[in-house]
Amino acid sequence: MVDPLSLKSVIEQLNANEAAESGRLSLKEKRARTVARLVLVQALYQMEIAGTGVESVIREFADFRFDGNIEGECGEEQRLGTADEAFFADGLRTIVKAQAEIDVLIAERLASNWRLDRIDTTLRAILRAGAWELKFRPDVAVEVVINEYVEIAKAFFGNEEARFVNGALDGIAKDAR
């Protein structure tokens, strides 16, 4: 999907942002949410490519990936960081359960000649995760959701796709909230 060094840099960039997710979350909790969002996108990608079920992916991430290291260039390992595992699991379960509803929200923001299945798998995972938060997590500020997934899109792709994610999620926010 993406170079692990890019994963580290996206986490650092997201953690540097000043947007407050909620007055109730500490800096440590905000960082854990950032990591959860990133691995949520990875898990959605994995599920679509491998056809893995939601509960087995949640177990795999809990057992082997959270609080672990990611391999960087030349085999060096870098710490991924602590993730908000409950947030991650809630997102994955809800996205799978409400995928039809989430996909409609996304499809309404695509050009008339585009279908959701024509979009890159990683980009589709980013949009589904962002749409989930916008629709089902009103406790999270719209600006936070959009900013975090735009930064994730930048890490995986570049500015063009990030602008697309920004526009699509902004539209979804207007529809969902």
Rank of each mutant, 00 (worst) to 15 (best):
C74D: 12
V2Q: 03
F156G: 06
A176H: 12
E71A: 09
A19I: 15
R65T: 08
V150I: 14
I119D: 03
E143G: 11
L7S: 13
F136D: 08
L127M: 14
W114I: 10
D84H: 07
F136W: 02
G81P: 11
P4D: 10
I49Y: 09
A141I: 05
N17I: 04
R79Y: 15
D63R: 15
G23Y: 13
A36F: 03
A168R: 07
E77G: 06
T52L: 10
S9P: 00
F88I: 09
A50L: 15
R37H: 05
S112Y: 03
L134D: 02
K174Q: 12
A86P: 00
I95Q: 04
T82R: 15
V165M: 01
V145D: 10
R177N: 12
R115K: 14
N17S: 07
A62M: 11
E133N: 13
G75F: 09
I152P: 10
R79V: 13
A168C: 14
V41Y: 04
L123T: 04
R59S: 10
E85N: 03
R128C: 05
K97M: 05
S9F: 13
D67Q: 09
I119F: 08
D103R: 04
V57W: 03
G167L: 08
S6Y: 01
L40W: 00
V96D: 09
A62T: 15
K174A: 11
I49H: 07
V10G: 03
I95A: 02
S9W: 08
M47C: 03
L44I: 09
E77T: 13
M47N: 01
V39G: 00
V96C: 03
R37P: 02
G167E: 12
I152M: 06
A131L: 07
R65I: 14
F87T: 01
G130N: 02
N69G: 08
V140T: 11
L7E: 13
T121F: 00
I11M: 06
I58K: 00
N69Q: 13
N113A: 03
V145Q: 05
G53K: 11
A89L: 00
E133G: 06
I119Q: 05
F136P: 00
E77A: 04
R37D: 09
F156C: 09
R93S: 04
G72H: 06
R177I: 13
D67N: 15
L40Y: 03
A141H: 11
K97F: 04
V104L: 15
E148L: 02
V10P: 05
L127V: 06
C74H: 15
E143K: 08
Q13K: 14
Y45E: 09
A125P: 07
K97L: 10
F164H: 00
G72Q: 05
E76A: 15
M47K: 08
E148T: 11
R128D: 08
K30Y: 02
